[in-house]
Structure formats: structure tokens, C-alpha cells
């Protein structure tokens, strides 16, 4: 049973940096955590796993209609085709932006996010402001991000309350005809795959 008043964490220093150091020291001293593993974890999410992965998925879907079909049918398998899988991406769903529907993703209860394709969520995604407002006033939130919707577009907000993780497939921008997959991937921002930006070709 949860103990709402027993709070062992208050035994640690209150300054967050000292708190982090104290916690890590205890874990390492107790043999619970290997400091080399901590460095490897940080390196993984700093350098290996990030929105560049998701951008490759989107670019592939833009150039390969058969891949796009598979992505919309079974995103977990289609994303794994490109080698992206793992923690916080166990059950993926891709949602396609169209002239009729603009999608955006939030986790109102915490900060659920598709790590294998987007990495660690940015601070804004985890902010109280985004979590509270995205479901009630998504259009005001999108305007704050500078997203201009088409008059024909409904807004569809996906609140990821389970272990299903959502990836927004943005519309391929005007002016990107004839571009190769790598150049297309460079047009796909992290925010575009959360739904708080559009993919845009340089003008």
C-alpha cells in the first residue's frame, strides 16, 4: 500500500544537483548501479536515439507508398523494419495528417512519448502547461506554436494514457517534389512528429 506521508526522499539533500549526486553515490556504493552503465545510458539517448530516427520513418513513408501503408496498418512492425524498437515504443500507432485532420499527441497524466523514434521528450512536452491545455484548447496551443491549420482540418488530440505510443505522420510539404529520402528527413522536425509543427520545405 502506498504510504502518502512516509517520504524517504526528504532524507536526500534538497538541492537537485546535490540530490542527484547523493542518490547516484548510494546506488553505486551499494552495488546496485554500474557507473559505466549510467554513462552508456546517457550516451544512448544523447547520441543514438532521437528524432532523427522518426524523421527517417516519415521520409520513407513519403517516398514509398507501400511502406506508408504498412506504417499506418502496423506501425510497430514498420518502424522495426528500419531498426527502431525498444523501450517506450512497444506498441506504436502512426497517425496521418491530411487536409481534413491535424493530429497532435500529449500525455496528460505524465510524459509518455515514443522513445525509439523521438528520444527523450523535450521539457515543453512534459510541462504542466502543455499537459493541461493540449486536450482542452489544442487550437490555442497550436497557434502558440505558430501552426496554421487549414479551414478544412479538424484537430485530433491523442492522449497517450496506455502503453500505446503515437507518431504523427506530417503532410509532405509543397516544394519537396523530387527530393531524396535523406533530404526529406531533414525537413521533419521533432515537433512535427508530435503535431505541434508542420513539415516545411525551405523557401
Amino acid at each position: 500500500m502506498p504510504h502518502d506521508h512516509a517520504e524517504p526522499h526528504s532524507l536526500l539533500p534538497s538541492d537537485p544537483e546535490l540530490r542527484s549526486r547523493a542518490l547516484e553515490t548510494i546506488l553505486v556504493q551499494k552495488g546496485l548501479v554500474d557507473p559505466d552503465a549510467l554513462n552508456a545510458l546517457i550516451d544512448t539517448y544523447q547520441n543514438e536515439i532521437g528524432p532523427q530516427n522518426g524523421a527517417r520513418v516519415v521520409a520513407r513513408a513519403w517516398v514509398d507508398p507501400e511502406y506508408k501503408k504498412r506504417l499506418l496498418q502496423d506501425a510497430t512492425a514498420a518502424i522495426a523494419e528500419l531498426g527502431f524498437m525498444g523501450r517506450q515504443g512497444e506498441h506504436m500507432v502512426a497517425v496521418e495528417n491530411t487536409p481534413d485532420q491535424h493530429n497532435m499527441v500529449v500525455c496528460t497524466l505524465c510524459s509518455c512519448y515514443p522513445w525509439p523514434v523521438l528520444g527523450i521528450p523535450p521539457a515543453w512536452y512534459k510541462s504542466d502547461a502543455y499537459r493541461s491545455r493540449a486536450v482542452r484548447e489544442p487550437r490555442a496551443v497550436l497557434a502558440e506554436f505558430g501552426v496554421e491549420l487549414l479551414a478544412s482540418q479538424k484537430v485530433h488530440v491523442w492522449d497517450s494514457t496506455a502503453e500505446v505510443r503515437y507518431l504523427v505522420l506530417p503532410m509532405r510539404p509543397e516544394g519537396s517534389q523530387g527530393m531524396g529520402e535523406a533530404a526529406l528527413a531533414a525537413l521533419v522536425s521533432r515537433n512535427a512528429m508530435i503535431g505541434t509543427a508542420l513539415a516545411e520545405a525551405a523557401t
Binding site: P16, E17, R19, S20, R21, L41, Y45, I120
Partner: peptide, 12 residues
Amino acid sequence: WHARALACTLAA
């Protein structure tokens, strides 16, 4: 320390 806190949580 953000990175260390995340890594400690994952490793633990």
C-alpha cells in the same frame, strides 16, 4: 544531473 537522474532511474 538531469542525465544522471534519468540514467539512475533506468539502471535501478
